[in-house]
Design a protein around this nucleic acid. Structure first.
Lengths: 192, 192
DNA sequence: CAGAAAAAATAAACTAGTTTAAGAAAAACA
DNA sequence: TGTTTTTCTTAAACTAGTTTATTTTTTCTG
């Protein structure tokens, strides 16, 4: 029997009270625990009815592949964060890949609305994602790659540690080569 | 007495039935009809409890001003479209400005949830905005400004007519000078 | 319709970021 | 632990896009 305690804790936290045995049973009945190995694909463009994932452990990325075949990282998600295509059940244009061996609780759209609806405002959830993306959008367009890197390291120092550089560069919208240049410049500054 | 017929039609359309007199009265009681002259500011960064706008006539832009003082157009909205900061009631970081003399129906967050809730799924609305923004984000990062211009003209030919070039350039994330270059190149191609 | 103001075009010098390629360092693995 | 694979660095030539400034064109207004 899989351990659902992290998931229960999550709901107890947002709900600010203990869960009853019945509630736990219901949660366990709609969520499925899944394990993904590093490099394993969780979902692919073209999939319909994609699931939502609450991450127990690990690190994943959501990305797209554009017409020219280039990958572009839209976002990263780690322990205790949600990840999924909010556009479901429509056909997704995103891929999700595990960057570390990860364990997640997954739920389909139906279960998501049902269970999440009890505890949190779904609209509010999407709203937050929207606001996050808007900020990221403006930031990437209005700042230089160097400034955006500084912001990222300021806000998510651990992510920078855990991710290979070429994933960060893709997140920042620049080539790995250019990010490497930025880092070289940065390193020089810091020794001086 | 202001004319609310465009607003009623909107609700009748999404609702797929006629509205009763009582329903119309309720709508009229929560929505306020407002007129904005070209260049007039509808909302400003720092405002809280911003309103939602359903546009009867005209064209507006939502934009931010970054740290360096540069403006950046996030989106345009015209007749029969909704516009507003989905993050309300929190302090907004956006400005909205009328680009043409415009008339709109405005409603506060409370009225929005109340009335809109009857007819449409609010979450779904935000979800759509989110998906739109995600597409735009990826498109701007993965394509050249020239490709993005072609996309825009393909999808919104009228907008390109109605907007001054420098607003389009800001929407595309480039300078007006560079957009002008793109257009010159385009014009040459089309005469050849 | 003239004059003023706003918007667009053009030019030239510049910089942020790309591309390709090759070697160095680090990580994974057997 | 040595070997293979993956990741990172560096270099050099290039391109997309910026900046500043000037001129031309278009739009607005009295």
């Amino acid at each position: 029997m899989e351990d659902y305690s992290v998931l229960y804790s999550y709901f107890e936290k947002i709900n600010k009270r203990q869960l009853s045995v019945e509630e736990k049973l219901e949660i366990a009945s709609v969520f499925r625990k899944e394990h993904f190995k590093k490099k394993e694909l969780v979902m692919s463009a073209g999939d319909t009815n994609t699931r939502h994932y609450y991450i127990e452990k690990g690190l994943l990325r959501m990305f797209i592949i554009d017409q020219s075949g280039k990958e572009f990282n839209v976002l990263f998600a780690k322990e205790y964060q949600w990840l999924g295509d909010l556009g479901t059940p429509a056909e997704t244009s995103y891929f999700i890949e595990a960057l570390e061996n990860s364990s997640v609780f997954s739920v389909d759209e139906e279960g998501f609305s049902k269970i999440i609806g009890y505890y949190m405002d779904l609209a509010d959830n999407i709203r937050k994602s929207y606001i996050f993306l808007q900020k990221r959008f403006v930031s990437i367009l209005s700042k230089t790659a160097e400034e955006n890197y500084e912001d990222l390291i300021g806000q998510n120092p651990d992510l920078v540690q855990r991710l290979p550089q070429y994933h960060i560069s893709s997140y920042l919208g620049v080539t790995p080569v250019f990010l490497s240049k930025i880092l070289a410049k940065r390193a020089k500054k810091n020794t001086k």
